Amino acid sequence: MNNTFSDNSQIATVSTFSELVQTNFKGEMNALCWYRNLDGDFNEIVARLSIKGNITEVYPEDLIALQLSEKGNTAREIILNDIQLLTDFGASPSLNLLKCYERDDEFDFISTDVYSFHVDRSPIATDTFLCTYHGAASDIIANSQAEQKILIPEIRTKLKELHDGPDEEFESFLEENYFDLHYQLNQDATPLNLGLGNLWRLAVDHPKQQVLPCIHRAPIENEGEYRLLLIC
């Protein structure tokens, strides 16, 4: 068990997939971790896959078609099993080979890309599941260590200047452009890296959610290294 995770009130650690999906979020806890030390050579899988553009979705049949060593095959079986577990649960997992995500550099005072700390929102009750098998892993932050960017006076002032409409439509403007989903860390904030091989379930902002949504971000990729990420 990873003490960094198990000693954190934001996170509950579990030892099975069943626990991961059946444990309820409560209080400050809005992230669940199925903590795993995975065997297998995930680097071999990444090396044998072909990337098209910055993001390529990898399907089970793509994995099955690879000629792999014993350790590479072990890694493949782990990924295929994770995909099957999530699919049987009713989720729609996507395995992505990533060079990088698209950047949002339209404004110098606020960003809405996934490299910015943000929360996910859904109109229906759902959660975000993710696992990084290879490459840089995502970060999360406690809600108490970050502030919604639209509440920061200087940013809010600039957003009001950007909004070309009546004052009563300003909040809708913020939501429609996803500005309200993004957060700025406090000076003493300490992000937590999600690590490799762990399968995470993160709370999403939706009408039935009982806890605050989990603030997270995609990592800056390591130079010359692809990420292999399962997400849904």
Rank of each mutant, 00 (worst) to 15 (best):
Y133F: 05
E154V: 04
I152S: 02
V119C: 01
P166T: 15
T132S: 06
S138Y: 05
S122K: 10
D113W: 03
V119S: 03
L130A: 10
E154K: 05
S116E: 14
T112E: 05
D167I: 08
A136I: 06
I140W: 00
E147M: 10
A125Y: 00
G135M: 11
E161R: 15
K149Q: 13
P153R: 09
V114F: 11
D108C: 07
E168T: 14
V119W: 02
Q145L: 06
H134G: 06
L162W: 05
H134W: 11
D139P: 04
E147Q: 13
R156Y: 06
D164M: 10
G165L: 07
E147F: 05
D127I: 14
L162T: 09
K149P: 02
D113Y: 01
D108P: 03
Y133D: 11
T126C: 07
K158F: 06
K149R: 07
Q145N: 13
A137M: 04
S111F: 04
T157N: 09
T112Q: 05
S116M: 12
P123T: 12
C131T: 11
I150P: 03
D105A: 09
E106P: 01
P123W: 08
K160Y: 06
F117D: 01
F109K: 04
A137G: 05
A142L: 09
H134F: 14
Y133P: 06
A146R: 00
E106M: 09
T126D: 08
V119Q: 02
D127R: 13
L159C: 07
D105L: 10
D167W: 08
F129W: 09
S138L: 11
L159W: 07
A136P: 04
P123Q: 12
F107G: 04
F107I: 09
F117L: 10
D127G: 12
D139M: 04
L162A: 11
I152L: 08
E106I: 12
L162D: 01
L130E: 01
E106R: 09
H163P: 07
V114R: 12
Q148V: 11
P166Q: 15
F129R: 04
Q148E: 07
I155S: 00
H163E: 06
K149V: 15
T112V: 14
L151I: 10
R156I: 14
I110N: 00
T157D: 15
L130P: 00
C131P: 01
A136D: 00
K158H: 03
D139G: 06
P166M: 15
F107S: 02
E161Y: 13
S144E: 14
S116I: 12
E106T: 08
D105E: 10
P153H: 02
A136Y: 08
